[in-house]
């Protein structure tokens, strides 16, 4: 049993919590929607886990479940980034009248 790598992961987890808090603390409210939708796209990072479930030597059922997970996570990622970009594009163009 090796606990050290797990503790290291827990360490990264804890630091990321504080980092997340710090990053968001002072955001103007008009950016809350794009921020939420942009970070929602990042939560699609679970696509990494889904891809790894598709190992060729795994039982077919695990692969099909993994396939469904890849599709859903990719919708989350691609759709999330695309919609956020569309929103932010509208914020941009009112630079100078």
């Amino acid at each position: 049993m090796e606990l050290a790598p797990l503790l290291l992961l827990l360490f990264a987890f804890t630091l990321a919590v504080f980092l997340g808090f710090e990053l968001i603390a002072k955001v103007p409210s008009q950016l809350h929607t794009p921020l939420m939708s942009g970070s929602n796209a990042i939560s699609g990072i679970t696509v990494v886990g889904a891809l790894l479930a598709l190992a060729a030597n795994e039982p077919p059922l695990a692969r099909w479940i993994g396939f469904a997970a890849v599709v859903l996570a990719t919708i989350n990622v691609v759709g999330g980034y695309a919609i956020t970009d569309r929103m932010l594009a509208m914020f941009k163009k009112k630079e100078k009248p």
Binding site: V17, H32, S39, I45, G49, L52
Partner: peptide
């Protein structure tokens, strides 16, 4: 985000844990 971070703990994947956790924490603050 938290769900993704937990999935990262299953397969010991750094980027899943860190990115999921960032989303979890920033979502909580928001």
């Amino acid at each position: 985000g938290v769900a993704a971070a937990l999935a990262g703990f299953i397969i010991l994947n750094n980027v899943l844990v860190v990115a999921g956790c960032l989303v979890g924490a920033s979502g909580m603050i928001l």
